[in-house]
Computed example of a mutant assay.
Amino acid sequence: MKVDLFDFDLPQELIALRPVSPRDSARMLVACGDEPFADKSVSDLPSLLQPGDVLVFNDTRVIPAQLDGRRGEAKIGATLHKRIDLRRWQAFVRNAKRLKIGNVVEFPAQVRALAETRHEDGSFTLKFEGEEPVELLLERAGRMPLPPYIAGKRPTDERDKSDYQTIFAREDGAVAAPTAALHFTPQLLEALSERGVQRETLTLHVGAGTFLPVKADDTDDHQMHAEWGRIEPETADRLNAARRNGNRVIAVGTTSLRLLESAADEDGIIQPFADDTSIFITPGHRFRAVDGLMTNFHLPKSTLMMLVSALMGRERMQEAYAHAIAQKYRFYSYGDSSLLIP
C-alpha cells in the first residue's frame, strides 16, 4: 500500500510536551465498531469494559539510553536501540561520519565504548568498557530518550524520569516507553479490579526504531527493526483460557499488541515467546490474539498509524483522527488516549 494513504495534517499545538496530571485524567476517544465516536476520559475505562475482559500491559522499563560524547574533537551522539549481550548495544549514532570501527567514544562520568561493528542501516554496535552493568553506566552518563517531537521543542529534565515511565515498569531495556500505559494510576487499577477486569503483563523492549520515519513510498518496501520480547507460558495459558471463555483480550499499547500477534499461531492460540520480533502490521492483517486496543494518537505515515488502520479500517481511523483534531485532543507520547474495539 502507498504510505501516503496514512498521512494527515496535525496542528503543531496539539503535540503534547507534558502529560496531564493526574495521569488518568487524560481524554480518551472511544471508537467501537461503527458506533458514533464517544469523548471520554481514561478514568472512565472501567465503565467501558466488561467483567472478565483482560488488559495486557508491557512491563518494560525505559533506560537512560541517550548519550552525548566525543571521539577526539568530534561530538558523537548515541541512542541505544537494542541490547546484543551484557556489554554490547546496537545504537543509532549522530555524526556517524566521524566514527569508524575501532574508535573509542568518551561519554561523561568516565563511561567509554568501542565502536565495534557498523550495520547496513548505519547503526553501530557499541561495546562498553569495564565490568559494571551497562545499566549502571547509563544511570551516570545517559538521559531519558524522549521522542524527537518532544526533545526538539524542549530539553529533557528531571520530571521526565518519572513522567516517561509506566507504573508497571520493571524489566530494564526499553528505549521508548509503552506510552498507552502512562495513563494508568493505582486508583484506576483498583477501579478496574472492582469491575472484574483482569490484568496480564508481557515484556517487549521498545527500540528507537519506533521513532524512525517510513522512508519508503510503499509499505512493501519498509523494513522494521527487530525488538526482543517475552511472554511467559503461564501468561499465555491464562490469555488463551480467557478467550476460550468468551472474554476479550485488549492490548494496552501497540507494543503489547505486536508481541501478542507475533506469539499467536494460525488458530489464534498464544504461544510462549522469548525472541526477537519485527512484525509489521498493515491493513489486510488477520488479527489472531487481540479483540481491542488502547493506544495514544500516532504520527502521520508511521507504522503505528498503519497498525491502527489495520485494526479498525483505514477510513474509520482517518475519521477518528479528524474528530480528535477537531476536538483538540493532545497527540503522541504525552498526549491523550483512544480505545479501539473493531
Rank of each mutant, 00 (worst) to 15 (best):
L204S: 03
Q187F: 14
P283Y: 05
R71T: 00
G229A: 04
L311C: 03
S256K: 00
Y149P: 00
V290P: 15
F184I: 06
A216D: 04
H298A: 14
Y334G: 05
N58L: 02
L304R: 07
L182Y: 12
F128C: 02
S309T: 11
L138R: 10
F280H: 13
E190R: 13
E158A: 10
S333T: 00
R143M: 07
D275C: 01
S256R: 00
R248S: 10
Q12I: 06
F107T: 03
F287G: 12
E131D: 07
L80A: 11
R316E: 06
L17W: 05
F8D: 15
G52T: 06
R87I: 05
D68K: 14
A113T: 01
R94C: 00
T60H: 09
H119F: 14
Y149D: 03
M312T: 12
I150Y: 10
E190T: 08
V105N: 01
S337K: 02
E234R: 11
S162L: 08
Q66T: 09
Y332Q: 14
D265A: 15
K97Y: 05
E227H: 04
D218M: 15
A242T: 01
I269Q: 15
Q198E: 10
A16Q: 01
D267I: 15
V62T: 08
I167D: 03
L48N: 00
Q12N: 11
T156S: 15
T179N: 11
L299V: 04
E227P: 04
T219Q: 09
I325A: 10
S262L: 03
P148V: 00
K75R: 14
F6M: 07
H298I: 14
G69L: 09
R195Y: 07
